[in-house]
Design a protein around this nucleic acid. Structure first.
Length: 515
RNA sequence: GGGCCGGUAGCUCAAUGGUAGAGCACUGCCCUUUUAAGGCAGGGGUUCUGGGUUCGAGUCCCAGCCGGCUCACCA
């Protein structure tokens, strides 16, 4: 069986490890004092010519993972991987001595070693460490994936991310960019006067969004708790408490489906600014995203899945305008803006859309029908079906229906709509923001409507949070708030098609062991 | 959850229903500036699992497991 075969390979390598120990090397030494990292050596010396390197004889001590081995009798080469880059090492018997050369001959791909020596350029011009001493640091008992094709099996890549990171260099870049992105966001918000805070991940009520939660249990208190679906209601409590600009970057958990755009746990930036409204948040978002792209890519333009995306300009459309603009060309004529003025009118257009969607060549599906569906809900569904995938360049969709926005403030001139926007890029929802509802009486009414939906069977409807209403009763300043999906933003900035490619350990079914 | 696709050596991939193969990796030997190093010789398989059809199954059928894409739900 393959188990047995693998055991043979492991046995071979264990024998070599013993041979290395027999040479007097420690099997698992404690540390190695490096003077340089691999990228540092490459960076500092890439401009130096062979003669200059020979004259200066720069000494280095560097460590890394052996990625290639090319022995040539009494000499040989290897490439050491470290810090995402590779540095060549030249080992010759007369330079390192018999013991270290014997170690070189016992090395397997994947082993970790330290090399002490001086820099030079080979005949072919490659910057190389001329080894004078080798140190064994750790053994790879299991063989590395193939050096040329790398590791392509996506399942193994996700389950054994360490292997993916070792052999697929671009994977490291993705997560380095993700780190840069988060760093740039923090810098930006700090400069805007925001305070970073942390609020509960385990909550007695899962509020702040419409989603089904995970449940867990605390033994000592003997209570069920929900993993949070959003930090929103806690962050706004902090606004009530006088922390006028707060943000949190942390995980949310939603017990929903898994797709290329959804992982059950995902990272959200949420930020709240007192005395601001949703227009301020739009302006802030534009500046934030430009800054982030600049920090990560050095540009506000980038390619994503064959499209050129630019953060230089952000479109703004109302939800109704988007429906009018992107009404399917092959369907019967769609609504003009005035045709959507009356709330109930939307049902006529849903019917018209369904008529089109029923035709197989439309490639679409009719919208879900329910008795007594609120017009605002139907409008939002129609928008998603008609417009969402066409929103490639950054577009703020503004003015959401009241019924799908239990925490947002109404528009003064039209109480059926709220001061809310979502930002779409590449057909993906990236951000969601609104002027926060701070009228406790109105908030209670909204919660009660949600409760009504819940009792009708909508498990994603918002639960009533009495303490949150109480907090509002102490007075919350007018506030703008926003959430930005960090994973999706990372997808954009790394040209990743799947959210799993920007999450180090995406959720998969547990691996079966031992059969 | 539905639909479609996939699972063969450690890795990347072949193999009309008729003896399971290649490259890399691995083992042994040669080689003191190579770089997908090279040369010679070798070892390695419950073809995801379980049933079925067949003289004969990696290949066809059924069920299951795992994954990918997609739709639904959502962000």
């Amino acid at each position: 069986m393959s188990e047995k075969e693998l055991q043979d390979l492991v046995q071979q390598r264990k024998k070599k490890l013993q041979a290395i120990v027999d040479l007097g090397f420690e099997a698992y030494p404690r540390k190695y004092d490096v003077t340089h990292s691999v990228p540092q050596i490459l960076r500092e010396n890439s401009a130096l010519a062979a003669e200059e390197l020979a004259a200066r004889k720069i000494s280095v001590r560097v460590a890394g993972r052996v990625m290639t081995i090319r022995p040539h009798g009494k000499a040989g080469f290897a490439h050491l991987a470290g810090g995402g880059q590779r540095l060549q090492v030249y080992v010759r018997l007369d330079a390192v001595g018999e013991r270290d050369f014997e170690l070189y001959r016992l090395l397997d791909l994947g082993d970790l070693i330290g090399v002490e020596g001086y820099l030079f350029r080979t005949k072919t011009g490659e910057l190389t460490v001329h080894a004078e001493h080798l140190q064994f640091l750790a053994k790879a008992l299991l063989p590395l994936p193939e050096k040329w094709h790398g590791l392509t099996d996506v399942e193994v890549r996700y389950r054994q991310r360490y292997l993916d990171l070792m052999v697929n260099e671009e994977v490291r870049t993705v997560f380095e960019r993700r780190g840069l992105l988060v760093c740039a966001i923090r810098d930006f918000l700090e400069a805007e006067g925001y305070l970073e805070v942390e609020t509960p991940m385990m909550q007695p009520l899962a509020g702040g969004a419409m989603a089904r939660p995970f449940v867990t249990h605390h033994n000592t208190l003997d209570i069920n708790l929900f993993l949070r679906i959003a930090p929103e209601l806690y962050l706004k409590r902090l606004i009530v408490g006088g922390l006028d600009r707060v943000y949190e970057i942390n995980r949310n958990f939603r017990n929903e489906g898994i797709s290329t755009q959804h992982n059950p746990e995902f990272t959200m930036l949420e930020f709240y600014q007192a005395y601001a409204d949703y227009h301020d948040m739009m302006d802030l978002t534009e500046r934030l995203l430009r800054r982030a792209a600049q920090a990560v890519l050095g540009s506000v333009e980038f390619d994503y899945c064959g499209q050129r995306i630019s953060f230089a300009k952000f479109e703004r459309l109302t939800m109704k305008e988007a429906i009018v603009k992107f009404w399917p060309a092959t369907a019967a004529p769609g609504p003009a803006l005035d045709d959507l003025a009356e709330p109930e009118a939307v049902f006529r257009w849903v019917a018209a859309y369904d008529e089109w969607a029923k035709q197989p060549e439309s490639g679409a599906e009719p919208l879900p029908r329910e008795e007594g569906k609120a017009p605002g809900m139907a409008l939002a569904e129609l928008f998603e079906a008609v417009a969402e995938r066409h929103l490639i360049q950054p577009t703020f969709i503004v003015d959401y229906p009241l019924e799908v926005s239990p925490l947002s403030k109404q528009k003064p001139e039209d109480p059926n709509f709220v001061e809310r926007f979502e930002l779409y890029v590449a057909g993906m929802e990236i951000a969601n923001a609104f002027s926060e509802l701070n009228d406790p009486g109105e908030q209670r009414d909204r919660f009660e409507y949600q409760q009504f939906l819940r009792e009708k069977g909508d498990l994603t409807a918002h639960a009533i949070d009495e303490d949150y209403v109480r907090a509002l009763c102490y007075g919350m300043p007018p506030t703008g708030g926003e959430g930005i999906g960090i994973d999706r933003l990372t997808m954009l900035l790394t040209n990743s098609r799947s959210i799993r490619d920007v999450i180090l350990f995406p959720l998969l079914r547990p691996e079966k062991h031992g059969g």
